[in-house]
Simulated scan of single mutants.
Amino acid sequence: MRSKKERLAQAGLLELGGILIVAPLSALVTGHDLASMGSLAVVMSTLAVIWSTVWNWMFDRWVPTRQRSATQRIAQALGFELGLVLVTVFIVAAWLDLGLWQALLLDLGFVAFFLVWAMIFNPLFDAVMSRLLARKAAREQQLAPHNTR
């Protein structure tokens, strides 16, 4: 199981990487300035970090392993994005002065981006964490006093 610290690191790194990619892309695609799209991305990301922490904690309870199938990864990513869009579509509409339909379409663009990003990022994060935890366990084993009976 993941620790709270690991869950926060996972969510934070996922969102930070996403902001750095999606803000300039969305500004380019929508014609809104980078400052508006960047600050919107930060607000949405803050909400996403909170939701991600809660969602991944729940998902870890349902699927308590790091070795997840592609179907489980898709369920993890879709559950996160669908929960988030219920809140963010209204924020996007207000922030960019858009109608709900336009905001939903833009929000779905964010969802599509982050869905792909999460499916790339999460397995990489798990692989890195598995290696780090294995190294830590090996170091601890080497440092433990040897029982010589």
Rank of each mutant, 00 (worst) to 15 (best):
M1I: 11
M1S: 12
R2E: 07
K4I: 12
K5H: 12
Q10I: 02
A11T: 07
L13R: 04
L14S: 10
E15C: 11
E15P: 00
L16M: 08
G17M: 04
I19K: 02
L20Y: 06
I21H: 08
A23P: 03
A23Q: 06
S26P: 09
S26G: 12
S26R: 08
A27S: 15
L28T: 10
V29Y: 14
V29M: 13
V29N: 04
G31P: 06
G31Y: 11
D33W: 01
L34Q: 03
G38P: 13
S39V: 11
S39Q: 14
L40M: 12
A41R: 07
V43Q: 02
S45I: 02
T46A: 14
T46S: 11
T46D: 00
L47D: 02
A48K: 00
V49A: 15
I50G: 14
I50N: 00
W51K: 00
S52L: 09
S52V: 01
T53R: 02
V54S: 01
V54M: 04
M58F: 15
D60T: 07
R61P: 07
W62A: 13
W62V: 02
W62H: 05
V63S: 03
P64R: 03
P64F: 08
R68T: 12
R68D: 05
S69L: 11
S69Y: 12
A70G: 00
T71R: 14
Q72T: 08
Q72N: 08
Q72D: 10
R73L: 11
R73Y: 11
I74E: 02
A77T: 12
A77H: 08
L78F: 10
L78G: 00
G79A: 06
L82S: 03
G83M: 04
G83N: 04
G83A: 04
L84F: 10
V85L: 13
L86K: 00
L86W: 04
V87P: 02
V87S: 03
V89P: 06
V89K: 01
F90S: 08
L96E: 01
L96W: 00
L98N: 02
G99F: 05
W101H: 07
Q102C: 00
A103V: 03
A103L: 04
L104S: 13
L104R: 03
L105I: 09
L106R: 09
G109D: 09
F110P: 00
V111K: 01
V111T: 13
A112Q: 03
F113E: 10
F114H: 14
V116S: 06
V116K: 02
V116W: 09
W117L: 08
A118M: 10
M119G: 10
F121T: 05
N122H: 13
N122S: 09
P123T: 06
F125P: 02
F125C: 02
M129K: 09
R131W: 12
A134D: 15
R135G: 10
A138S: 11
R139D: 09
R139H: 07
R139Q: 10
Q141S: 13
Q141Y: 10
Q141W: 08
A144H: 12
H146Y: 06
H146K: 09
N147M: 11
N147A: 14
T148E: 14
R149G: 11
